[in-house]
Design a protein around this nucleic acid. Structure first.
Length: 221
DNA sequence: GGCCAGGCACAGC
DNA sequence: GCTGTGCATGGC
């Protein structure tokens, strides 16, 4: 009976993907900027991340060495709007040191090691967990990685009416369906899931206006 | 003024 | 292994 599911998840995801374009919702100018954004956005809204990135752009050239040359106080002040500024400045310095020392500040070299190795190296850094690592792999490394975040989990739980936490493999199977995972598909699914959860399937959901409510246990309540 | 936001680490069961 | 908690700011 384990992980048996009659819910047509990939049909649901198809609807969301059709509804929400992947309109460059993660703006960036470099791989490193994406990686910084992935740290800065932890438990924070993107609007606040933009403030932090804008401030950083004014005082650095947004590359690892330039970040490392900052006074700690200036780094903290720049990223203050994104919250948790002491933790996040520590995490940003760890990442910058890693890239500077082991990859000559070229993050592409890290991703060229492949998904498995790159993920392991990133997760060894304090403050980079599975979601942040996978976000970096997908958006900065252009790797075909499926991101499980709290939004994907929310949709899974509400649609299925299940309280238990499914395995990552199971969720991936549900969301991707029979298709082959590509970076492009994964980005599109991830952005659609996030957008849907921000606009409709919020902490307190607006089920009456939801385009997938006919599939959803939560909406039947 | 309370609640929430693209997590993670760490302590205590 | 799982659950609770601290981390901090900004916007509704």
């Amino acid at each position: 009976m384990l992980e048996k599911s009659a819910i047509p998840f990939h049909e649901i995801i198809e609807i969301l993907v059709d509804e929400y374009e992947e309109e460059g919702w993660w703006p960036h100018e470099s791989r490193f900027e994406i990686m910084l954004g992935a740290i800065l956005v932890q438990r924070t809204k993107w609007a606040n991340v933009e403030k932090a990135l804008d401030s950083l752009k004014k005082i650095t050239s947004l590359d690892p060495r330039s970040i490392l040359s900052l006074e700690r106080h200036d780094l903290e002040n720049a990223i203050r709007p994104s919250g948790f500024f002491m933790q996040k400045s520590e995490r940003i310095l760890s990442l910058s040191s890693l890239l500077s020392e082991r990859f000559n500040s070229d993050s592409k070299k890290l991703f060229d090691l492949g998904v498995g190795s790159a993920r392991e190296i990133l997760m060894d850094l304090n403050g980079i967990g599975p979601e942040t690592a996978d976000t970096m792999l997908l958006y900065a490394g252009d790797k075909p990685v499926f991101i499980i975040d709290s939004y994907a989990l929310r949709i899974y739980k509400r649609v299925s009416g299940s309280r238990s936490i499914p395995s990552i493999k199971h969720m991936q199977k549900c969301f991707i369906g029979p298709r082959k995972i590509t970076a492009g598909l994964s980005r599109h699914i991830h952005s659609a899931v996030v957008t849907h959860c921000q606009r409709t399937c919020k902490t307190r959901p607006s089920c009456t206006s939801c385009m997938i409510n006919r599939y959803c246990e939560e909406a039947k309540k």
